[in-house]
């Protein structure tokens, strides 16, 4: 704990972000979200509440969703991190979720979108063929104030189908 008036402690951490390795010095008190945004320029991750409720800052840490505002950068030392910027292919081809969000008008202001996309990447990885209720349950950790969620639910269900097709699964 840094006392008032003292210089905050810094640590060297290694983060792999969207497949790119970064070795950086961060203040121990810096959140992962601030580190990604301010140190690494990954401003696609947004801060909506900074108390872990809205979900806008959700990123994947070693494949698991995490609130970027509730995790310190030093805690992510050595981890593989995926942000929204890492969802499209290297060639720029959209992730099926991004494509479906576009077609179903699943975003308006777009501020919550990054956290929803990363959350849904994890969710569809675990549950490739969800019901609408399961999608809504999975979405309930992310707040969207613009859309009323209907387009998002449709898009996630649609993306699930595209992912199953892509992965060669047999749709029921």
């Amino acid at each position: 704990m840094t006392g008032v008036g003292e210089l905050p402690e810094t640590r060297s951490v290694t983060l792999s972000v969207n497949g790119e390795r970064h070795e950086i010095d961060v203040e121990t008190r810096m959140t992962l979200a601030d580190c990604l945004r301010r140190k690494l320029g990954k401003t696609g991750t947004h801060l909506g509440c900074e108390h872990g409720v809205c979900g806008a800052c959700t990123v994947l840490v070693d494949g698991r969703s995490a609130r970027g505002c509730l995790m310190l950068a030093v805690q992510a030392n050595g981890a593989e991190i995926t942000t929204v910027e890492g969802l499209a292919s290297r060639g720029g081809e959209w992730h099926p979720l991004q494509q479906a969000f576009h077609e179903h008008h699943a975003l308006q202001c777009g501020f919550c979108t990054a956290g929803i996309l990363t959350s849904m990447v994890e969710f569809l990885g675990e549950n490739p063929d969800p019901t609408e209720d399961e999608v809504r349950e999975a979405l309930s950790g992310n707040i969207c104030r613009c859309t009323g969620y209907q387009g998002i639910v449709r898009a996630v269900l649609d993306a699930a189908g595209r992912l199953r097709a892509r992965n060669g699964a047999i749709a029921p």
Partner: peptide, 19 residues
């Protein structure tokens, strides 16, 4: 018509005030 705004916002390269 799907939105012209979407590509930048879906890729995380929109510019909100803190960006």
């Amino acid at each position: 018509v799907p939105r012209k705004e979407d590509p930048r916002l879906l890729r995380g390269i929109g510019t909100y005030i803190d960006d």
